[in-house]
Design a binder for these strands. Structure first.
Length: 173
DNA sequence: ACGATGATGAAC
DNA sequence: TTCATCATCGTA
């Protein structure tokens, strides 16, 4: 089986290009000496230009600083006081955009997958790769455009017109 | 349908 | 320094 670790170049593009392309790729997490790989089946794009649903909507802050660190950065944050959410930063440095990983094969829900893969604040602002223990692999799964369903993003009703944009990408079974 | 639970950002 | 808000989930 062909295996290729996605590098910085893959993430150094528009978030609207990268988010759908992550479907079918494998998220690999190494902890306690074991590697756990699961296929990504659901993503959401944040930060395209002046996205009012993005954490970067009010400029750079202590929380969203990782979004400005450039492609391949890991952005993990706490939401609702109890859930960690995983984002992969894309596009060029100082241009905040990120892809929220919402679901893996067999693990649906952005907070569930971080719990299962033991992803927490310790990974925040680290870089994707074997050194950090979290990376993404292309294992040769081919996804047709017709296999991708686009829908509005979840939980962002407050964002006005931005709440309606079809920036959520789901892999059909 | 709703409570848990705490960091965040904006107002005062 | 206070307050409403949240990229959610489990239980009812």
């Amino acid at each position: 089986m062909r295996k290729k670790v996605l590098d910085k170049k893959f993430f150094d593009r528009s978030v609207l290009e990268v988010a759908p392309e992550l479907l079918g790729k494998f998220l690999v997490r190494k902890y306690r000496g074991h590697e756990h790989a699961s296929m990504i089946v659901e993503t959401e794009a944040y930060g395209a230009a002046h996205d009012k649903a993005s954490h970067a909507r009010s400029g750079k802050t202590a929380r969203n600083a990782p979004m400005f660190d450039g492609p391949g950065t890991i952005y993990v944050y706490l939401t609702y006081g109890m859930h960690w959410l995983l984002n992969l930063v894309v596009d060029k440095k100082e241009y905040p955009s990120a892809v929220l990983i919402r679901g893996l094969e067999g693990v649906t829900g952005p907070a569930r997958l971080t719990k299962k893969l033991q992803i927490g604040k310790g990974l925040n602002r680290k870089t994707l790769g074997k050194a950090s223990g979290l990376w993404v692999e292309d294992r040769g799964v081919v996804i047709e455009k017709s296999d991708i369903k686009k829908t509005p993003r979840v939980g962002v009703d407050y964002a006005g017109v931005w709440a309606k944009k079809p920036y959520r990408f789901v892999l059909k079974k």
